[in-house]
C-alpha cells in the first residue's frame, strides 16, 4: 500500500529526461506556428499600413514644447464662468442620467434574465442592451444631438441610454446566477410575482446593484467630460472651445479639474463598494 513502492521497476529516467521538452502553451505544433505566424504577420502589416506624416509629426514635436508650456500655469480664472457652467452641466448630467438610468435598467434587467422573463420580452430587452453597448457613447450622443438639439439634454439622454445597457447587462447576469433554492422557497409560500421579486431576487442582487451604481456614477462623469466634443453639453464643450481658441492654460485648468473630480468619484465609489460588500 505504501506510495513509496509505487515506482515502476524498469523506469528509465535518462530516456525520459532526453525525451522531455518544456510543455508549449499551445499543444498542436501546427496551430502553434500558425498563431505565431499570424500574430507576426498582423503586427508587420499593421505597422506598415499605418500612414504617418513624419514631417508633420517632427514639426509637431518641435512645437510640442511650446504647446505644453502653454499649459502652464493653468488658468482657472479668466474663463471661470465658462468652466463653472460646463462643470455644472457635467455634474447635473451625471446625477440625472445615473438616477434615471438605474431606475430604467432594473425592469430591463428583469426582462433580460432568462430565468424570469418569457422569450419575447427576453429578446426585446437583450436587443436594447446590445444596441446600447455596441455604440460608443459619442456616437449615441451624435444621434441624440440630431434629435433634440445641442445642449446638456442630449448628453443626459446619451448617458441614461448607456447606463441602461451597462447596468442591465451586469444585473441580468447576476439575476441569472441567483440561488434557485431561495427563489423557489419564496415562490412556495404562494407569493405573487412582485412580492416574489422583492423577497427573493432583490435581496440577492442588492449589494451588486449598489456597487454597480456607484461604479457607473464614476463612469458617467468621465464620459460627460467628452460628450461636449459633439455638442452634447458639459465640461467637454468648455475644453473643446479652449483648444479651438488656443487657450491652452484654460484647457489645462479644465483637465486638472476633470482629474480631481474623477479621483473624488473613484474614491467615493470604491468606498461605497467596499462598504456594501
Amino acid at each position: 500500500m505504501s506510495a513509496t513502492n509505487a515506482g515502476t521497476a524498469g523506469f528509465d529516467a535518462a530516456a525520459a529526461a532526453r525525451a522531455w521538452r518544456p510543455p508549449p502553451l499551445i499543444e498542436s505544433p501546427l496551430l502553434r506556428y500558425a498563431v505565431y505566424l499570424g500574430a507576426l504577420l498582423y503586427v508587420v502589416l499593421g505597422v506598415v499600413t499605418v500612414e504617418v506624416n513624419w514631417t508633420r509629426a517632427a514639426e509637431g514635436m518641435g512645437r510640442a514644447a511650446g504647446f505644453l508650456s502653454g499649459f502652464f500655469p493653468p488658468d482657472f480664472v479668466s474663463k471661470g464662468d465658462d468652466i463653472f457652467e460646463g462643470l455644472m452641466e457635467s455634474l447635473t448630467m451625471t446625477v440625472v442620467s445615473t438616477a434615471l438610468g438605474i431606475a430604467l435598467s432594473i425592469p430591463v434587467a428583469l426582462g433580460a434574465s432568462r430565468n424570469l422573463a418569457p422569450l419575447p420580452i427576453y429578446l426585446f430587452c437583450r436587443a436594447i442592451i446590445a444596441v446600447s453597448r455596441t455604440f460608443q457613447e459619442i456616437i449615441i450622443a451624435i444621434v441624440f444631438v440630431a434629435m433634440v438639439g445641442f445642449g446638456p439634454l442630449a448628453g443626459m439622454l446619451t448617458l441614461t441610454f448607456a447606463t441602461v445597457g451597462f447596468m442591465a447587462k451586469l444585473l441580468a447576469e447576476d439575476i441569472e446566477d441567483i440561488e434557485a433554492a431561495q427563489a423557489e422557497a419564496v415562490r412556495a409560500t404562494g407569493a405573487g410575482w412582485f412580492s416574489w421579486i422583492a423577497w427573493s431576487v432583490l435581496p440577492q442582487v442588492k449589494p451588486r446593484l449598489i456597487g454597480l451604481s456607484a461604479y457607473r456614477l464614476d463612469i458617467n462623469f468621465r464620459e460627460s467630460a467628452v460628450l461636449g466634443l459633439v455638442g452634447a453639453g458639459g465640461i467637454g464643450d468648455t475644453l473643446n472651445t479652449a483648444f479651438d481658441r488656443y487657450e491652452f492654460d484654460t484647457a489645462a485648468a479644465v483637465l486638472l479639474i476633470i482629474i480631481a473630480i474623477v479621483l473624488v468619484c473613484e474614491y467615493t465609489s470604491g468606498w461605497i463598494r467596499r462598504k456594501v460588500q
Binding site: T4, N5, A6, G7, A13, A17, R18, W20
Partner: peptide, 22 residues
C-alpha cells in the same frame, strides 16, 4: 542541465509520479 531533468524523473518515479510529469 540534462542530469537535473534525469534526477527529477528518477525522484518522480521514486514517489510514483513519473507518468504525471506534464
Amino acid at each position: 542541465p540534462r542530469r537535473d531533468v534525469e534526477e527529477a524523473f528518477r525522484l518522480l518515479d521514486r514517489v510514483g509520479l513519473a507518468h504525471m510529469a506534464d
